[in-house]
Design a protein around this nucleic acid. Structure first.
Length: 414
DNA sequence: GAGTTTGAAACT
DNA sequence: CAGTTTCAAACTC
């Protein structure tokens, strides 16, 4: 049995967020310039956290660029950036970035620079074409360009040596980084891990990433001491990103959804797999497998746990730090609101602060947003009329609110 | 590190 | 669609 009602949570691990999570939060929840238009090509427009917002392990981004629809090249799925962007974020095609099964993939496609533009970065959709892409650009360190030791672009075999690596594009949580010269077409892909190793990054403070699956280590890597401390408005290298875990596939050849890399739409890199075909050397095999897997890609459909009580990482929901929903078909579920204390215990969360803020945390807000977005998606599919769809979403919101209130009373925050 | 458990994916 | 098998990650010792 799964738990009824909305999924809410207050794991402090999420409160200790982070670049990707707070970005998402800002995208969907802040009262900044957020526009949620499911179905539109570009739905992200936000101003991001103010410069005085500094979460642990993060560097604030006072210069965030709002991507306007007119900036988007729909044909090439690229977007125009000013010559000195500090951060762009693009979500495509639907604004839904569920933390549970997000598959961030950035396949590059060198887009021809438009004649009247000096700068363009190109993004093509993940092979899970309905999956979101979070494309994040940050100014890198111009004086200390990142060493490119590997790139993932399928069609390119060599890293252009001429590229002026002063923009670091991070596919959040994807384990891939892309170096983009705003005035060169197309990003250059490389392993985040190696990039950050070469950049002298040190492991972060165990800050959780939102939107991760088992695909990713839930650790971020802020820039090493002395660098992030010197970030300025002019010089914002922020190395917050996720590191993709290497897979250990032995039989699937990494071209089945068993393989986390493949399932996430990324090629294997630094993995410990055998007979891997999920790499640039087996493009044809990979494409074929993608074609086959495309129709059965992982989707948000809830877990089906029977023995773990949804309180271990076997459970997709638990692992993704979200609660089970009515979409789940789990047995003996302990991953719902009443078990939040257990969840918190499992996650070694210690909620010590008092007051409503200890309940309505960024994580909770995010969870609500996720719920509402998921519900909106479901309503879009199933509701016979827009009015009923609206009701479905509002009902979900009501349940979320009621759980928040419940949690407040539980925590004696009144 | 080896063996076991678990649940999703794949198969029948 | 349901049951079974395969698979790789999570977990335990």
């Amino acid at each position: 049995m799964n738990s009824p009602g909305a999924q809410l949570e207050t794991p402090q691990s999420k409160q200790e967020s982070i670049h990707t999570g707070s970005s998402f939060l800002n995208q969907c929840c802040s009262d900044s310039d957020t526009h949620v238009n499911p179905g539109s090509a570009v739905t992200t427009a936000w101003t991001g956290p103010s410069s005085d917002v500094a979460l642990p392990g993060t560097v604030s981004h006072p210069h965030l660029l709002t991507i306007q629809p007119e900036m988007v090249d729909l044909l090439n799925m690229g977007f125009q950036c000013p010559s000195q962007p500090t951060q762009c974020q693009l979500t495509y095609p639907n604004f839904f970035l569920g933390p549970q099964f997000s598959q961030y993939h950035l396949l590059s496609g060198p887009a021809p620079a438009p004649p009247d533009s000096s700068c363009q970065s190109s993004v093509s959709a993940s092979w899970f074409t309905e999956e979101p892409i979070l494309y994040s650009m940050m100014l890198g360190d111009q004086q200390n360009p990142i060493a490119v030791d590997q790139q993932f672009q399928e069609e390119q075999t060599e890293v252009p040596s001429h590229i002026n690596q002063h923009v670091l594009c991070n596919v959040s949580g994807g384990g891939q980084a892309a170096l983009v010269n705003p005035c060169e077409p197309g990003p250059v892909f490389l392993a985040v891990e190696s990039a950050y190793r070469d950049e002298g990054l040190t492991q972060g403070k165990g800050v959780k990433l939102l939107g991760t699956s088992s695909q990713y280590h839930q650790t971020v890597y802020p820039l090493s001491e002395g660098r992030d401390q010197t970030v300025s408005m002019k010089h914002q290298a922020t190395g917050i990103t996720g590191i993709r875990k290497p897979c250990h596939c032995t039989r699937s050849q990494c071209v089945k959804l068993y393989c986390e890399c493949f399932a996430s739409g990324v090629m294997c890199s630094n993995c410990d797999c055998s007979n891997c075909r999920n790499n640039a050397e087996h493009v044809m095999n990979r494409q074929e497998a993608i074609k086959i897997a495309g129709g059965t890609s992982r989707k948000v459909k809830g877990c089906n746990c029977k023995r773990s009580g949804c309180l271990k990482n076997y459970c997709e929901c638990f692992e993704a730090n979200i609660m089970c929903t009515s979409s789940c078909r789990c047995v003996g579920c302990g991953n719902y609101d009443d078990s939040s204390q257990m969840r918190n215990k499992e996650k070694t969360v210690n909620m010590t602060d008092k007051g409503p803020a200890s309940v309505i945390t960024p994580a909770v807000v995010e969870a609500v947003c996720n719920n509402l977005l998921a519900q909106a998606e479901e309503a879009e599919r199933e509701a016979p009329s827009p009015t009923q769809a609206e009701h479905m979403v509002l009902d979900e919101f009501g349940q979320c609110l009621s759980q928040i209130v419940k949690a407040m009373f539980k925590n004696n925050t009144f």
